[in-house]
Design a protein around this nucleic acid. Sequence first.
DNA 1: TTGTAAGCGTTATCAG
DNA 2: CTGATAACGCTTACAA
Lengths: 346, 346
Amino acid sequence: MSKVTLKELARELNMSVSTVSKALNDSYEISEATKQRVKELASKYNYRPNALAKNLKLGRTNNIGVIISTIGSPFQAQIIEALHRASVRFDFNLIMMQSQDSEEIERKALNTLINHGVEGLLISPAFENSNIDLLSHLHKTTCPIVLFDRINYNIDTFKVGVNNEKSIYRAAEELFKIGRKKIAILCGKNIGVTKDRLKGYRKALEDYHIDFNPSYIIYCDYNNSLEGIDSDMETKLTQLLHSEQAPDAVLGTTDTLTTRVLGVLSKLNIQVPEDLAVIGFANTDIAESLNPSLSTIRQPTFEMADIAIEKLINLIESKNRSQIDVHEILLDSTIQLRKSTKQKLS
Amino acid sequence: MSKVTLKELARELNMSVSTVSKALNDSYEISEATKQRVKELASKYNYRPNALAKNLKLGRTNNIGVIISTIGSPFQAQIIEALHRASVRFDFNLIMMQSQDSEEIERKALNTLINHGVEGLLISPAFENSNIDLLSHLHKTTCPIVLFDRINYNIDTFKVGVNNEKSIYRAAEELFKIGRKKIAILCGKNIGVTKDRLKGYRKALEDYHIDFNPSYIIYCDYNNSLEGIDSDMETKLTQLLHSEQAPDAVLGTTDTLTTRVLGVLSKLNIQVPEDLAVIGFANTDIAESLNPSLSTIRQPTFEMADIAIEKLINLIESKNRSQIDVHEILLDSTIQLRKSTKQKLS
DNA sequence: TTGTAAGCGTTATCAG
DNA sequence: CTGATAACGCTTACAA
């Protein structure tokens, strides 16, 4: 904690506290001469205003809270990095919490943040409508809330996310272009985005008049370890590949599934892309270095973070929140084609 | 911001503010009956103590600051995740800042954190001795500081990091075990850890009586893009592999270099591990899914974070800081052997 | 141009 | 067991 206070400066300078305060804040009421003297002494003693006192007085904190499920996952870390940069730009402090995909921990995090007087809240909810009553209540009575990334949530505010349906649709199109029509799709069990992403898959099949084969939907259980996911995929893929209706492509709906399936396939001695083309969501830079390099659907994390912060600050600063037209903002992802979806040589 | 205050509760209850305060804090001076009444009304109005006022009064903030270079990199994100979990456990708030490897940004971050009254500071410095005067001064006069990860820094406090020299030494030993003695080592130009890691390399060669070949040290320039690093590695490796003294193994000293070199090698049609074995620092889970799966030196991020937080809190809570024996804490990394260092079949 | 005093929401001391 | 009062460090009418 900082040590020297206005009072002490005032005493040493034989001035009143208020004069010193005004001088340091460059008030027009104070003469240049005094400002000079005050500032000199202040910097000599390395005076730092006590933010607590200042904010208490002014009734502001300049804090905004963020809740995300796990910072450690590369995708979410990218978002946090971007959110943090944006918040620095706007002169707000970011207080971060992790929900670890638990409604209970999320609730605690919300309370902690509110207790710390955040002026606004960014949240990527633990799951669809988790803590919805609390969140709606806070939004109405306490501080504005903006949702990001996981925006499948029934609340009337800004929601910034990615157009999941369209992203998968376009990825499927890329597979069609190289002649693959038997597309297995890897989904996370109980993962929020699954629904929209599956919808895009179904829509693409329909538009291109390709029959839907329910056995192509592979649900993987995320509750286990990474090795658990791998062996789950292995079992299910093996079975499918040995059946009558072996697929010729795989579409991954989450970063984890997309990056890990390559390892599983190589273990099974499946040639990518010859036997099976692979594409899916993944924001990792390692995609380029994989063997074969991995075609990915990349989400615009920086853009998403920037917009989320900006919208939140709009809400915070606005006198009349009800006049602001809140809505959902869907960003496009980018498809990066690499070797895992290379055209068969014929 | 929270709305309802002690004063308002007091008025409605026809009590004094201090009684209400004590009741909510379960003071022994207050009767059960009143406590009951007070707490009921408080929860009815969703009363939340104003942390600002409370902390101002108590002279504490319960904030600790963290400075790290980039949150977005998987390795650092893992540390932040762990730091955050630990801080929640100890009931401290983490305020995070990124230095982006710039001394200037780091200085600003330090000032911001101090202004927010952090009670302690965790830092992984932008580079060796960056902002050293400021940091030493703060540590002596303002709040305790603990270094983590990048601990090559001339300051007298706890430093929690990994035993880089030993880690590389042991990785080299693994290569010796499979008969590889011509080991190229990938280093980051101007990367702090390079020195210690190179030292471990030299020491291993020496102890095993293997001649040191200076051309095996490959410096890669990090200032460019990832693609820049790749092409840099490509050029230098190609040259080396076509020379008289082609290496039979590669040792990566940073996560980026280790994970990306596999992509470069596959582009050059080098067989891993047959032509070239690969091992190096890397904390990513994707190592398992790479083709071939990648042998890695994994740093104990969670342990490092836990210890750093614990030591910092020790310093914060101690009445007599000079009595605490501060020192460097070097953790061991774990070697995970996978296919990229499989024994040649002979 | 400077100073006085009140108050932000708490907690702690002390008196009743 | 309860209440009045002061104080934490700062800003800001308002007074001088």
